[in-house]
Design a protein around this nucleic acid. Structure first.
Lengths: 274, 274
DNA sequence: TATACTAATGACCAGCCAGTCATTTGTCAA
DNA sequence: TTGACAAATGACTGGCTGGTCATTAGTATA
């Protein structure tokens, strides 16, 4: 399992520098100081490697963002959202670069769907934040606002990732909060309609219940902590056949939430169990 | 020369679908119905092909945009800017896709520099528009605004290029004009400073006088129209050693401006001759 | 030490790549 | 019809690709 991590780290460096396609398995294994055969003991294919990287980073990013948005007061939530986003991008700048480079390369169908899937999760988080902050008064322009927020994230990340400048996260976030509030409160001409979003989204798979079950079983095997383990098993029962009241489910979710390896599964369960 | 155009058109289709790296020369020539050898009679290498594509489309886009911004009244210029941008992207959607896919793939140094070069020309056009519309009162936030405008262009183009939805150009442009005005007039927290821009820009080449001279000579050879030809020769003299008054230069530029194959060289000359 | 097992190796495979060049084809004028 | 020239061909080269697998190295138990 350590070998797997080594490969992921080193490969990420190379992908960030050269792009996924332009990096050969040989280069990766040379850079890791292992043989080519050893690579294929950890990953079935080169494609599986990049899918693993995407899952590893984006599942963490999405679950952290969701948690933060849920647990921050209205007057701080937008600032926190921007701050955390750029903070993550800065800390995992190699991954962010890979994400930028590969975002519209749809060669690999599975990769494309995965990206769209995470993107749609992010859109939902942003929309939930918009509704909380500005309510139904901006019903007409909420999708426009969502696009602007995504646009800000993209544009400013790109600038800093490829210019290698140091920058003041706090000020950037404050500046974007101001812009977002201006647009939210004063935009009168909507452009993106609900229908457009629906049409685009209908092509994106959702995680199935079976996917979540599988992940749950895997985590139960993997982890040692007794409290977390028992919570996982109970949540698995609940997913199969709902019997516990909301309060119990919420408590179980909090139990596993704290464990660093369970944030993603907690996020997925919250989507299904309330 | 016709062969060259055929290759460019067919290759663009394939690049838009599969990406540059993932498309082989063999595929391109098969798709054109020509032999592999014939490809290398038109282009020295596969790289030269994509560089030619970039130059072909971006020089047209930049010179058109610049012309439009210069010749539109203040109350319409922003709307026209957005409208023309999205109109071009829609008309040349294959090229737009290639641009998106390859924008951050810096494998080829020359390609990277070319992209940055055209990007910096676009930034200058946007900044000149900002200064004209909002004057020095937004001196502090003009770079922020420029980034937001670029962000709008990027985000909304991406959405429509990859969702394949039909959309109302007029409404989109109106909607973005409103957003831009809101941000321009009410933003108080600047983030992008002049220094940041300077640092990033210093690494981008400019076209040299020699480049322009070369292009001029090429156009003189290439074109038949007597008026345009004479204007080009006179402008060449002026570039070498300024003797004519502004009015004459302006007139000569207008002479060549109208010819469809001279828009780019006219743009470059205007940058140097006033 | 002997045995049984897994972890790791790297030579090897078939296939594709960009690019070349000896050869053929097409097109003129004489 | 001939000859001279340019346009076009596609088999070929050397090199790199993702992926395989018989072999070897390392390790733990008996």
């Amino acid at each position: 399992m350590l070998k797997k991590q080594l490969i992921m780290e080193k490969a990420l460096e190379l992908f960030a520098k050269q792009g996924f396609e332009a990096t050969s398995v040989q280069q990766i294994t040379d850079y890791c100081g292992i043989s080519k055969g050893a690579f294929y003991l950890s990953f079935k294919s080169k494609d599986e490697l990049i899918l693993a990287l995407i899952d590893y980073f984006l599942s963490e990013f999405i679950s952290n963002t969701d948690y933060s948005v849920r647990n921050t007061d209205d007057d701080e939530v937008l600032y926190q959202f921007y701050y955390n986003t750029f903070d993550s991008f800065q800390k995992h700048s190699n991954f962010a670069k890979v994400l930028m480079k590969e975002q519209s390369h749809s060669l690999n169908k599975e990769l494309f769907l995965k990206m769209r899937y995470y993107d749609s999760l992010l859109e939902n988080i942003i929309l939930s934040m918009i509704d909380r902050l500005y309510g139904c008064e901006i019903e007409d322009t909420r999708y426009d606002l969502m696009f602007c927020i995504k646009g800000f994230m993209n544009t400013f990340s790109q600038f800093f990732l490829f210019s290698h400048l140091p920058y003041d996260l706090t000020r950037l976030s404050q500046s974007l909060v101001e812009k977002t509030n201006l647009l939210a409160k004063q935009t009168t001409i909507p452009f993106i309609s609900k229908d457009m979003i629906t049409i685009v989204k209908q092509s994106v798979d959702e995680t199935t219940k079976e996917n979540v079950m599988e992940l749950l079983e895997q985590k139960v095997e993997e982890l040692d902590n007794a409290l977390v383990k028992e919570s996982l098993i109970l949540l698995k029962q609940q997913l199969n056949e709902p019997v516990f009241p909301q309060a119990i489910v919420a408590g179980l979710l909090k139990n596993i939430q704290e464990h660093p390896h369970c944030k993603w599964v907690a996020y997925l369960l919250r989507q299904r169990l309330g």
